[in-house]
Simulated assay, not measured.
Amino acid sequence: MGAEAEERPHGAAVVADGFGLKGPRGWAFREVSFRAGPGTLVAIEGPSGSGRTCLLLALTGRMKAKEGTAEIGGLQLPKKMAGVRRISALGHVPGVSELDPAFTVAEHLGERALLQRRFDGSVRTFLRRPSERRASARARIDEAVAAAGLDLAALPKGERTSVRDLERLEALRLSIALALIGRPRLLAVDDTDLKLSDADRAEAWALLRSVADSGTTVLAVCSEAPEGALRITTLDATTAADTATAAIDKAADTAPGTEARTDDEAEAEADTADDNEAGADTDTADDADDATAADTKVNKASKAQVPDKADKADSDLTEDTTEEGAADALAETGRA
């Protein structure tokens, strides 16, 4: 039994197939498909408002997708959301798992260790002596702090340093340490490279790579994915709208019965008609003129139908990926 547990990969494999999430005013993201093995660093790249955070929360079981499926560590979404939450942990995610600026580093770490023991510990844990429980909690904290590369001694006031006094990179390390206390199989971090210098950004990605190398699968939202990471790109609302409009316009141009002929094609047809009807009487020529006039009316009517489809495209864009849709979906997040 122990040998099988050691052979089993610690990280959770992530598989998404046509994954999509829709809010009250539009799609936050859709048609996301990729595969990532255990211990992979996955960078969710895209501009702000393109549904990156919603995708992160959906893949960790915190938001319910509306289309497609995903599988996290063998647990299918959206059916097994609770199971996915048990094997995943959130680092920094604004509005969901933020650090309290009034807390000290030690208070954050102690609180997380206490919650971990209270909600995820076995009954046998509560039968231990208080000294053993404290030693076990301290060991978990030290392990997580070391894995996050957070040097407590280098902080201005050590463990008593308030979160508000931490640098951006130090706060990121603390949030990752808090997530790692639960020894998750999947770690999710939002805004990984936000407000970081080039040097700090390199350190942040080196940290996440080390976590992935240790076996934990990492999902990291960023504006620009680093080299060596599995890149998943989300589109912003403007790009998605342009893509949808282009697709609808193309469909309108090639749809049967709405194809408009060019002037050259009309003249070629007229010349062919003249050659075939050479020697015919004046009535036949008049009929040909009437037919040409009718073709012109059909062409004008066909061209008039194209703007109607463009208008329909504009109305359909409300159903596409929008920043408002992502914000509404994020606001509907139940439990983090």
Rank of each mutant, 00 (worst) to 15 (best):
D120V: 06
D120Y: 04
G121E: 07
V123S: 03
V123H: 00
R124Y: 10
L127P: 01
L127T: 03
R128L: 15
P130A: 07
P130C: 04
P130W: 00
P130L: 06
P130E: 09
P130G: 09
S131E: 15
S131T: 15
E132P: 09
R133D: 08
R134C: 06
R134V: 10
R134Y: 01
R134N: 11
A135W: 05
A135V: 10
S136W: 10
A137V: 01
R138K: 12
A139R: 04
R140F: 07
E143R: 07
E143K: 02
V145W: 07
A146H: 05
A146C: 07
A146R: 09
A147E: 13
D151T: 09
D151K: 06
A153N: 12
A153D: 15
A153I: 10
A154S: 13
L155N: 00
L155V: 00
P156S: 03
P156H: 01
G158A: 09
G158Y: 07
T161N: 04
T161K: 02
S162Y: 08
V163K: 01
R164W: 05
D165I: 03
D165S: 12
L166Q: 02
E167V: 14
R168A: 11
R168T: 12
L169M: 06
E170K: 04
E170G: 09
E170N: 10
A171F: 06
L172G: 14
S175W: 00
S175I: 08
I176W: 02
I176N: 03
I176H: 01
I176C: 11
I176F: 01
A177C: 05
L178I: 11
A179H: 01
A179N: 07
A179E: 10
A179K: 02
